[in-house]
Design a protein around this nucleic acid. Structure first.
Lengths: 331, 331
DNA sequence: AGACCGTAAGAAATCGGTTTCGTCAATACC
DNA sequence: GGTATTGACGAAACCGATTTCTTACGGTCT
C-alpha cells in the first residue's frame, strides 16, 4: 500500500506535486513523467479514505431500497447504477426491509461516510430524514414520497390503477376485484384508489366491499388474498393486483385451482418477472422501473454538481400491455 | 456536522477523552456524563471517514456479483447481508455484469476504500486478484472458483447436474437434452458435465451431440436454445437447463409451442423464481443461494477477526424437488 | 515518610491525501 | 534595464478521529 509520500520520494518531488499530477493541475511535463513512472513502479493508488476526509465528499452514492429480492427494485437499481457509472460514481446498495430503524441506520452511515448523495425509496412516509436534510446532503426520493421538500421521482400510481382496471372491463369482465398492499404503503394505496374509481363508475355489482383485499405485498400475501376472493359467495371474475409479487401469488392460486387466465381476468400493476407460461393472457401495467432509477440518478447528479433550484417532482407514466383476453363466452 | 473537538470544548474535556468515551475506554463516570450530554446537544456522530483513515479499516464489506437482476444472486446477497448485519457490518453491493474490467475497478475501489473484506462471485476464472490478495485484504470467493488460494464457498455443480438428469430418466423420459451456459462459465459447465455423465450411462440414443446446446445464460439464451432443440429432426422429450433464467426461457418457448411440462420433461438447476403456473410439473435442483451467502459471510467474518488458517473451500449440496411428472403414456 | 503503582486525562503525533501560501525563476512590458 | 506578471513547486496546515506518550494524582506498601 504505497502512499503519495513514497511516490514523491522516489520521483524526487514533493507530495504536493504528486497530488497535482493525479488531479491534472499545472505541472511541468518533465515532473509529470517522473511522477507517473514512480507511481507505476510502486503500483500507487490514491487512498480514497484520505482523499475523502479532506474533500468531505466521495464518489459514492447510497441507494436505499426496501427489498432487494423484488425485481422491480433491482431494475430500478440497475438504472441508478448505469447513470451513476456514466458520471464516475459507484453505487452502494442498502436493503432496508421496510424497517424504519434499518433505514435510519443506513441514512446515518451514508452521512457519516461522507457519501456524495442518497437515493431513497422510503420505507414509510414519516421516516426521520430531518437529520440528512439538515446536513445538506443531496437526496432524491424515488417510488414513494416523503414528508420533506426534496426532489422526487414517482409513477402516476392512480393512473396505473385506473388503466389496469379499465383494461379488464374493456375485455368484458364485470366483477373486478383488487388485491392491494398493506394500508400504509403509498404506492399500492394509490393504485387501489384508481381501481375504486373505475369500479364505481363502470359498474361492479353493489355491495361488494370484500372485493378489495389488503395483503402484505409479497407472493404469499397475493396467495392468501386470492384464496379469500375465490372463496367468496359471489367470487369476482377478474382481479387487479397492485404490485408484481402479489400478482405472482394470485396467479399461483388460480393455477392451483385449475383456472387459467383468459377464463379469469388478471391485471397486474408492475411487470411479471420471469413468467414461464401464458404471459399473453394477462394485462400488465408496465412500471418504468429502470427509467425511474436513471431519472433519480440524473437529478441527484445535478444536485451534486451544485444545482440549487427548488425541489422538483417528476412523475412518470406507466404503459399498458392489454392482455389478449377474450372473455369466455359462457361467463 | 459537529466534530469531536466541538464536543470536547462544550464538555470541557480533551478530544482524546471524548474518543475514549465513545470507544468504551476507561473514563470517570463524571466525564462520561459530561461528554454524553454534550454529544447529545450537538447531535454528534463520529465521522466514519476520519475513523477509517486512522484505523485503516471500516465496517463495510464489498459484495461483487455478476448480475443484480438474477434472483439467485439477490438471494445470495440477502444471505450475506443477514450475516454481516449480525456482526455490525454493512454490505456494499456492486454489479460487475460479468465484465472483468468492471470487476477490477470495483476491487480497486474496495481496497482503496479500506473496506474490511470482499466477497466475490468472480466474473471469470482469470480475474486480476493478485492486487487484492497481495494487499492482504480478507476475501472469499463464492459460487465460482478463482485461480487463487483463497477461501471459497461452492455448490457441488457436477452432482446438481447429475441429479437433475437422473430425475428426468427416473420419470421415464428417454431423450434428455441439455441447455448449458456459455463455455467459459465454470458453474454451468460443471452442471452440463454432470448431464453428460448420466446421459452416456443411462442411454440417450447415440449420435445426438446436438442435444447439448450452449447459450448465454439469460432468459433469451434459454429461449433460443429451446427453439433449436424443438426444431431438431428427432427432438428430445426432456431438457435440463443449467441455470434458472435459461429454464425460464425454455419454459416460455414450450408454452408458446403449446407444450405443457408433464408432456415434455423439464429439470432446472436452480430455483425458478416467481413461477406462476404449473411449478409442480417441473424438477428443480434447489441451489442454496442464501446459505451460500451466509456461509461466505461467516468465513469472511472469521478472517476479518484475524483467523489465519490456510484457505478452505466449503462445498454445499443442492437438493432436488422431483417433478410430480408421470411421463405421458403415449410417448 | 518515601518509594512505588495504577488510573484518569491532556498534549501531540498519526493516518494519507489536498490545498493554501509563499518563494523563486522566467517571461512580459515600458 | 528594471519592474510587473505569470507559472511551477515545496513547506506546512488541514480534514476528524485514534492512540501513544506524559503528567498528575490518589492510594498502597515497607
Amino acid at each position: 500500500m504505497s502512499t503519495i509520500y513514497e511516490v514523491a520520494a522516489l520521483a524526487g518531488v514533493s507530495p504536493a506535486t504528486v497530488s497535482r499530477v493525479f488531479n491534472g493541475l499545472s505541472v511541468s511535463s518533465e515532473k509529470i513523467r517522473l511522477v507517473r513512472d514512480a507511481a507505476e513502479v510502486l503500483k500507487f493508488t490514491p487512498n480514497r479514505t484520505a482523499r475523502r476526509l479532506r474533500n468531505q465528499s466521495s464518489e459514492l452514492i447510497a441507494l436505499l431500497i426496501p427489498d432487494i429480492e423484488n425485481p422491480f427494485f433491482t431494475a430500478l437499481a440497475r438504472g441508478v447504477e448505469d447513470r451513476a457509472q456514466q458520471s464516475g460514481y459507484s453505487v452502494v446498495l442498502c436493503n432496508t426491509d421496510d424497517d424504519p430503524d434499518k433505514e435510519t441506520n443506513y441514512l446515518d452511515i451514508a452521512v457519516s461516510e461522507n457519501m456524495a448523495g442518497i437515493i431513497l425509496a422510503p420505507a414509510s412516509a414519516d421516516g426521520d430524514l430531518a437529520h440528512v436534510v439538515s446536513r445538506g446532503r443531496p437526496m432524491v426520493a424515488v417510488d414513494r414520497s416523503t414528508g420533506f421538500d426534496i426532489d422526487a421521482v414517482m409513477v402516476d400510481n392512480r393512473a396505473a390503477g385506473i388503466a389496469a382496471t379499465n383494461a379488464l372491463f374493456d375485455a368484458g369482465y364485470s366483477r373486478v376485484a383488487c388485491i392491494a398492499g398493506p394500508v400504509g404503503i403509498e404506492t399500492t394505496e394509490e393504485r387501489s384508489l384508481g381501481w375504486r374509481q373505475v369500479v364505481t363508475r363502470r359498474g361492479n355489482p353493489a355491495g361488494h366491499d370484500d372485493y378489495l383485499q389488503h395483503a402484505n405485498y409479497r407472493v404469499d400475501g397475493g396467495r392468501a388474498a386470492m384464496r379469500t376472493l375465490l372463496d367468496l359467495p359471489t367470487p369476482p371474475d377478474a382481479v387487479v393486483t397492485t404490485n408484481n409479487l402479489m400478482g405472482v401469488g394470485a396467479l399461483q392460486i388460480l393455477s392451483e385451482a385449475g383456472i387459467t387466465p383468459p377464463e379469469f381476468g388478471v391485471a397486474v400493476v408492475g411487470d411479471l418477472p420471469f413468467t414461464t407460461l401464458l404471459p399473453d393472457a394477462i394485462t400488465q401495467v408496465h412500471l418504468p422501473a429502470r427509467h425511474l432509477g436513471t431519472t433519480a440518478a440524473s437529478m441527484l447528479m445535478e444536485r451534486i454538481a451544485g444545482d440549487t433550484q427548488p425541489a422538483r417532482t417528476i412523475v412518470l407514466r406507466a404503459s399498458v400491455t392489454q392482455g389478449a383476453t377474450p372473455v369466455p363466452t359462457a361467463r
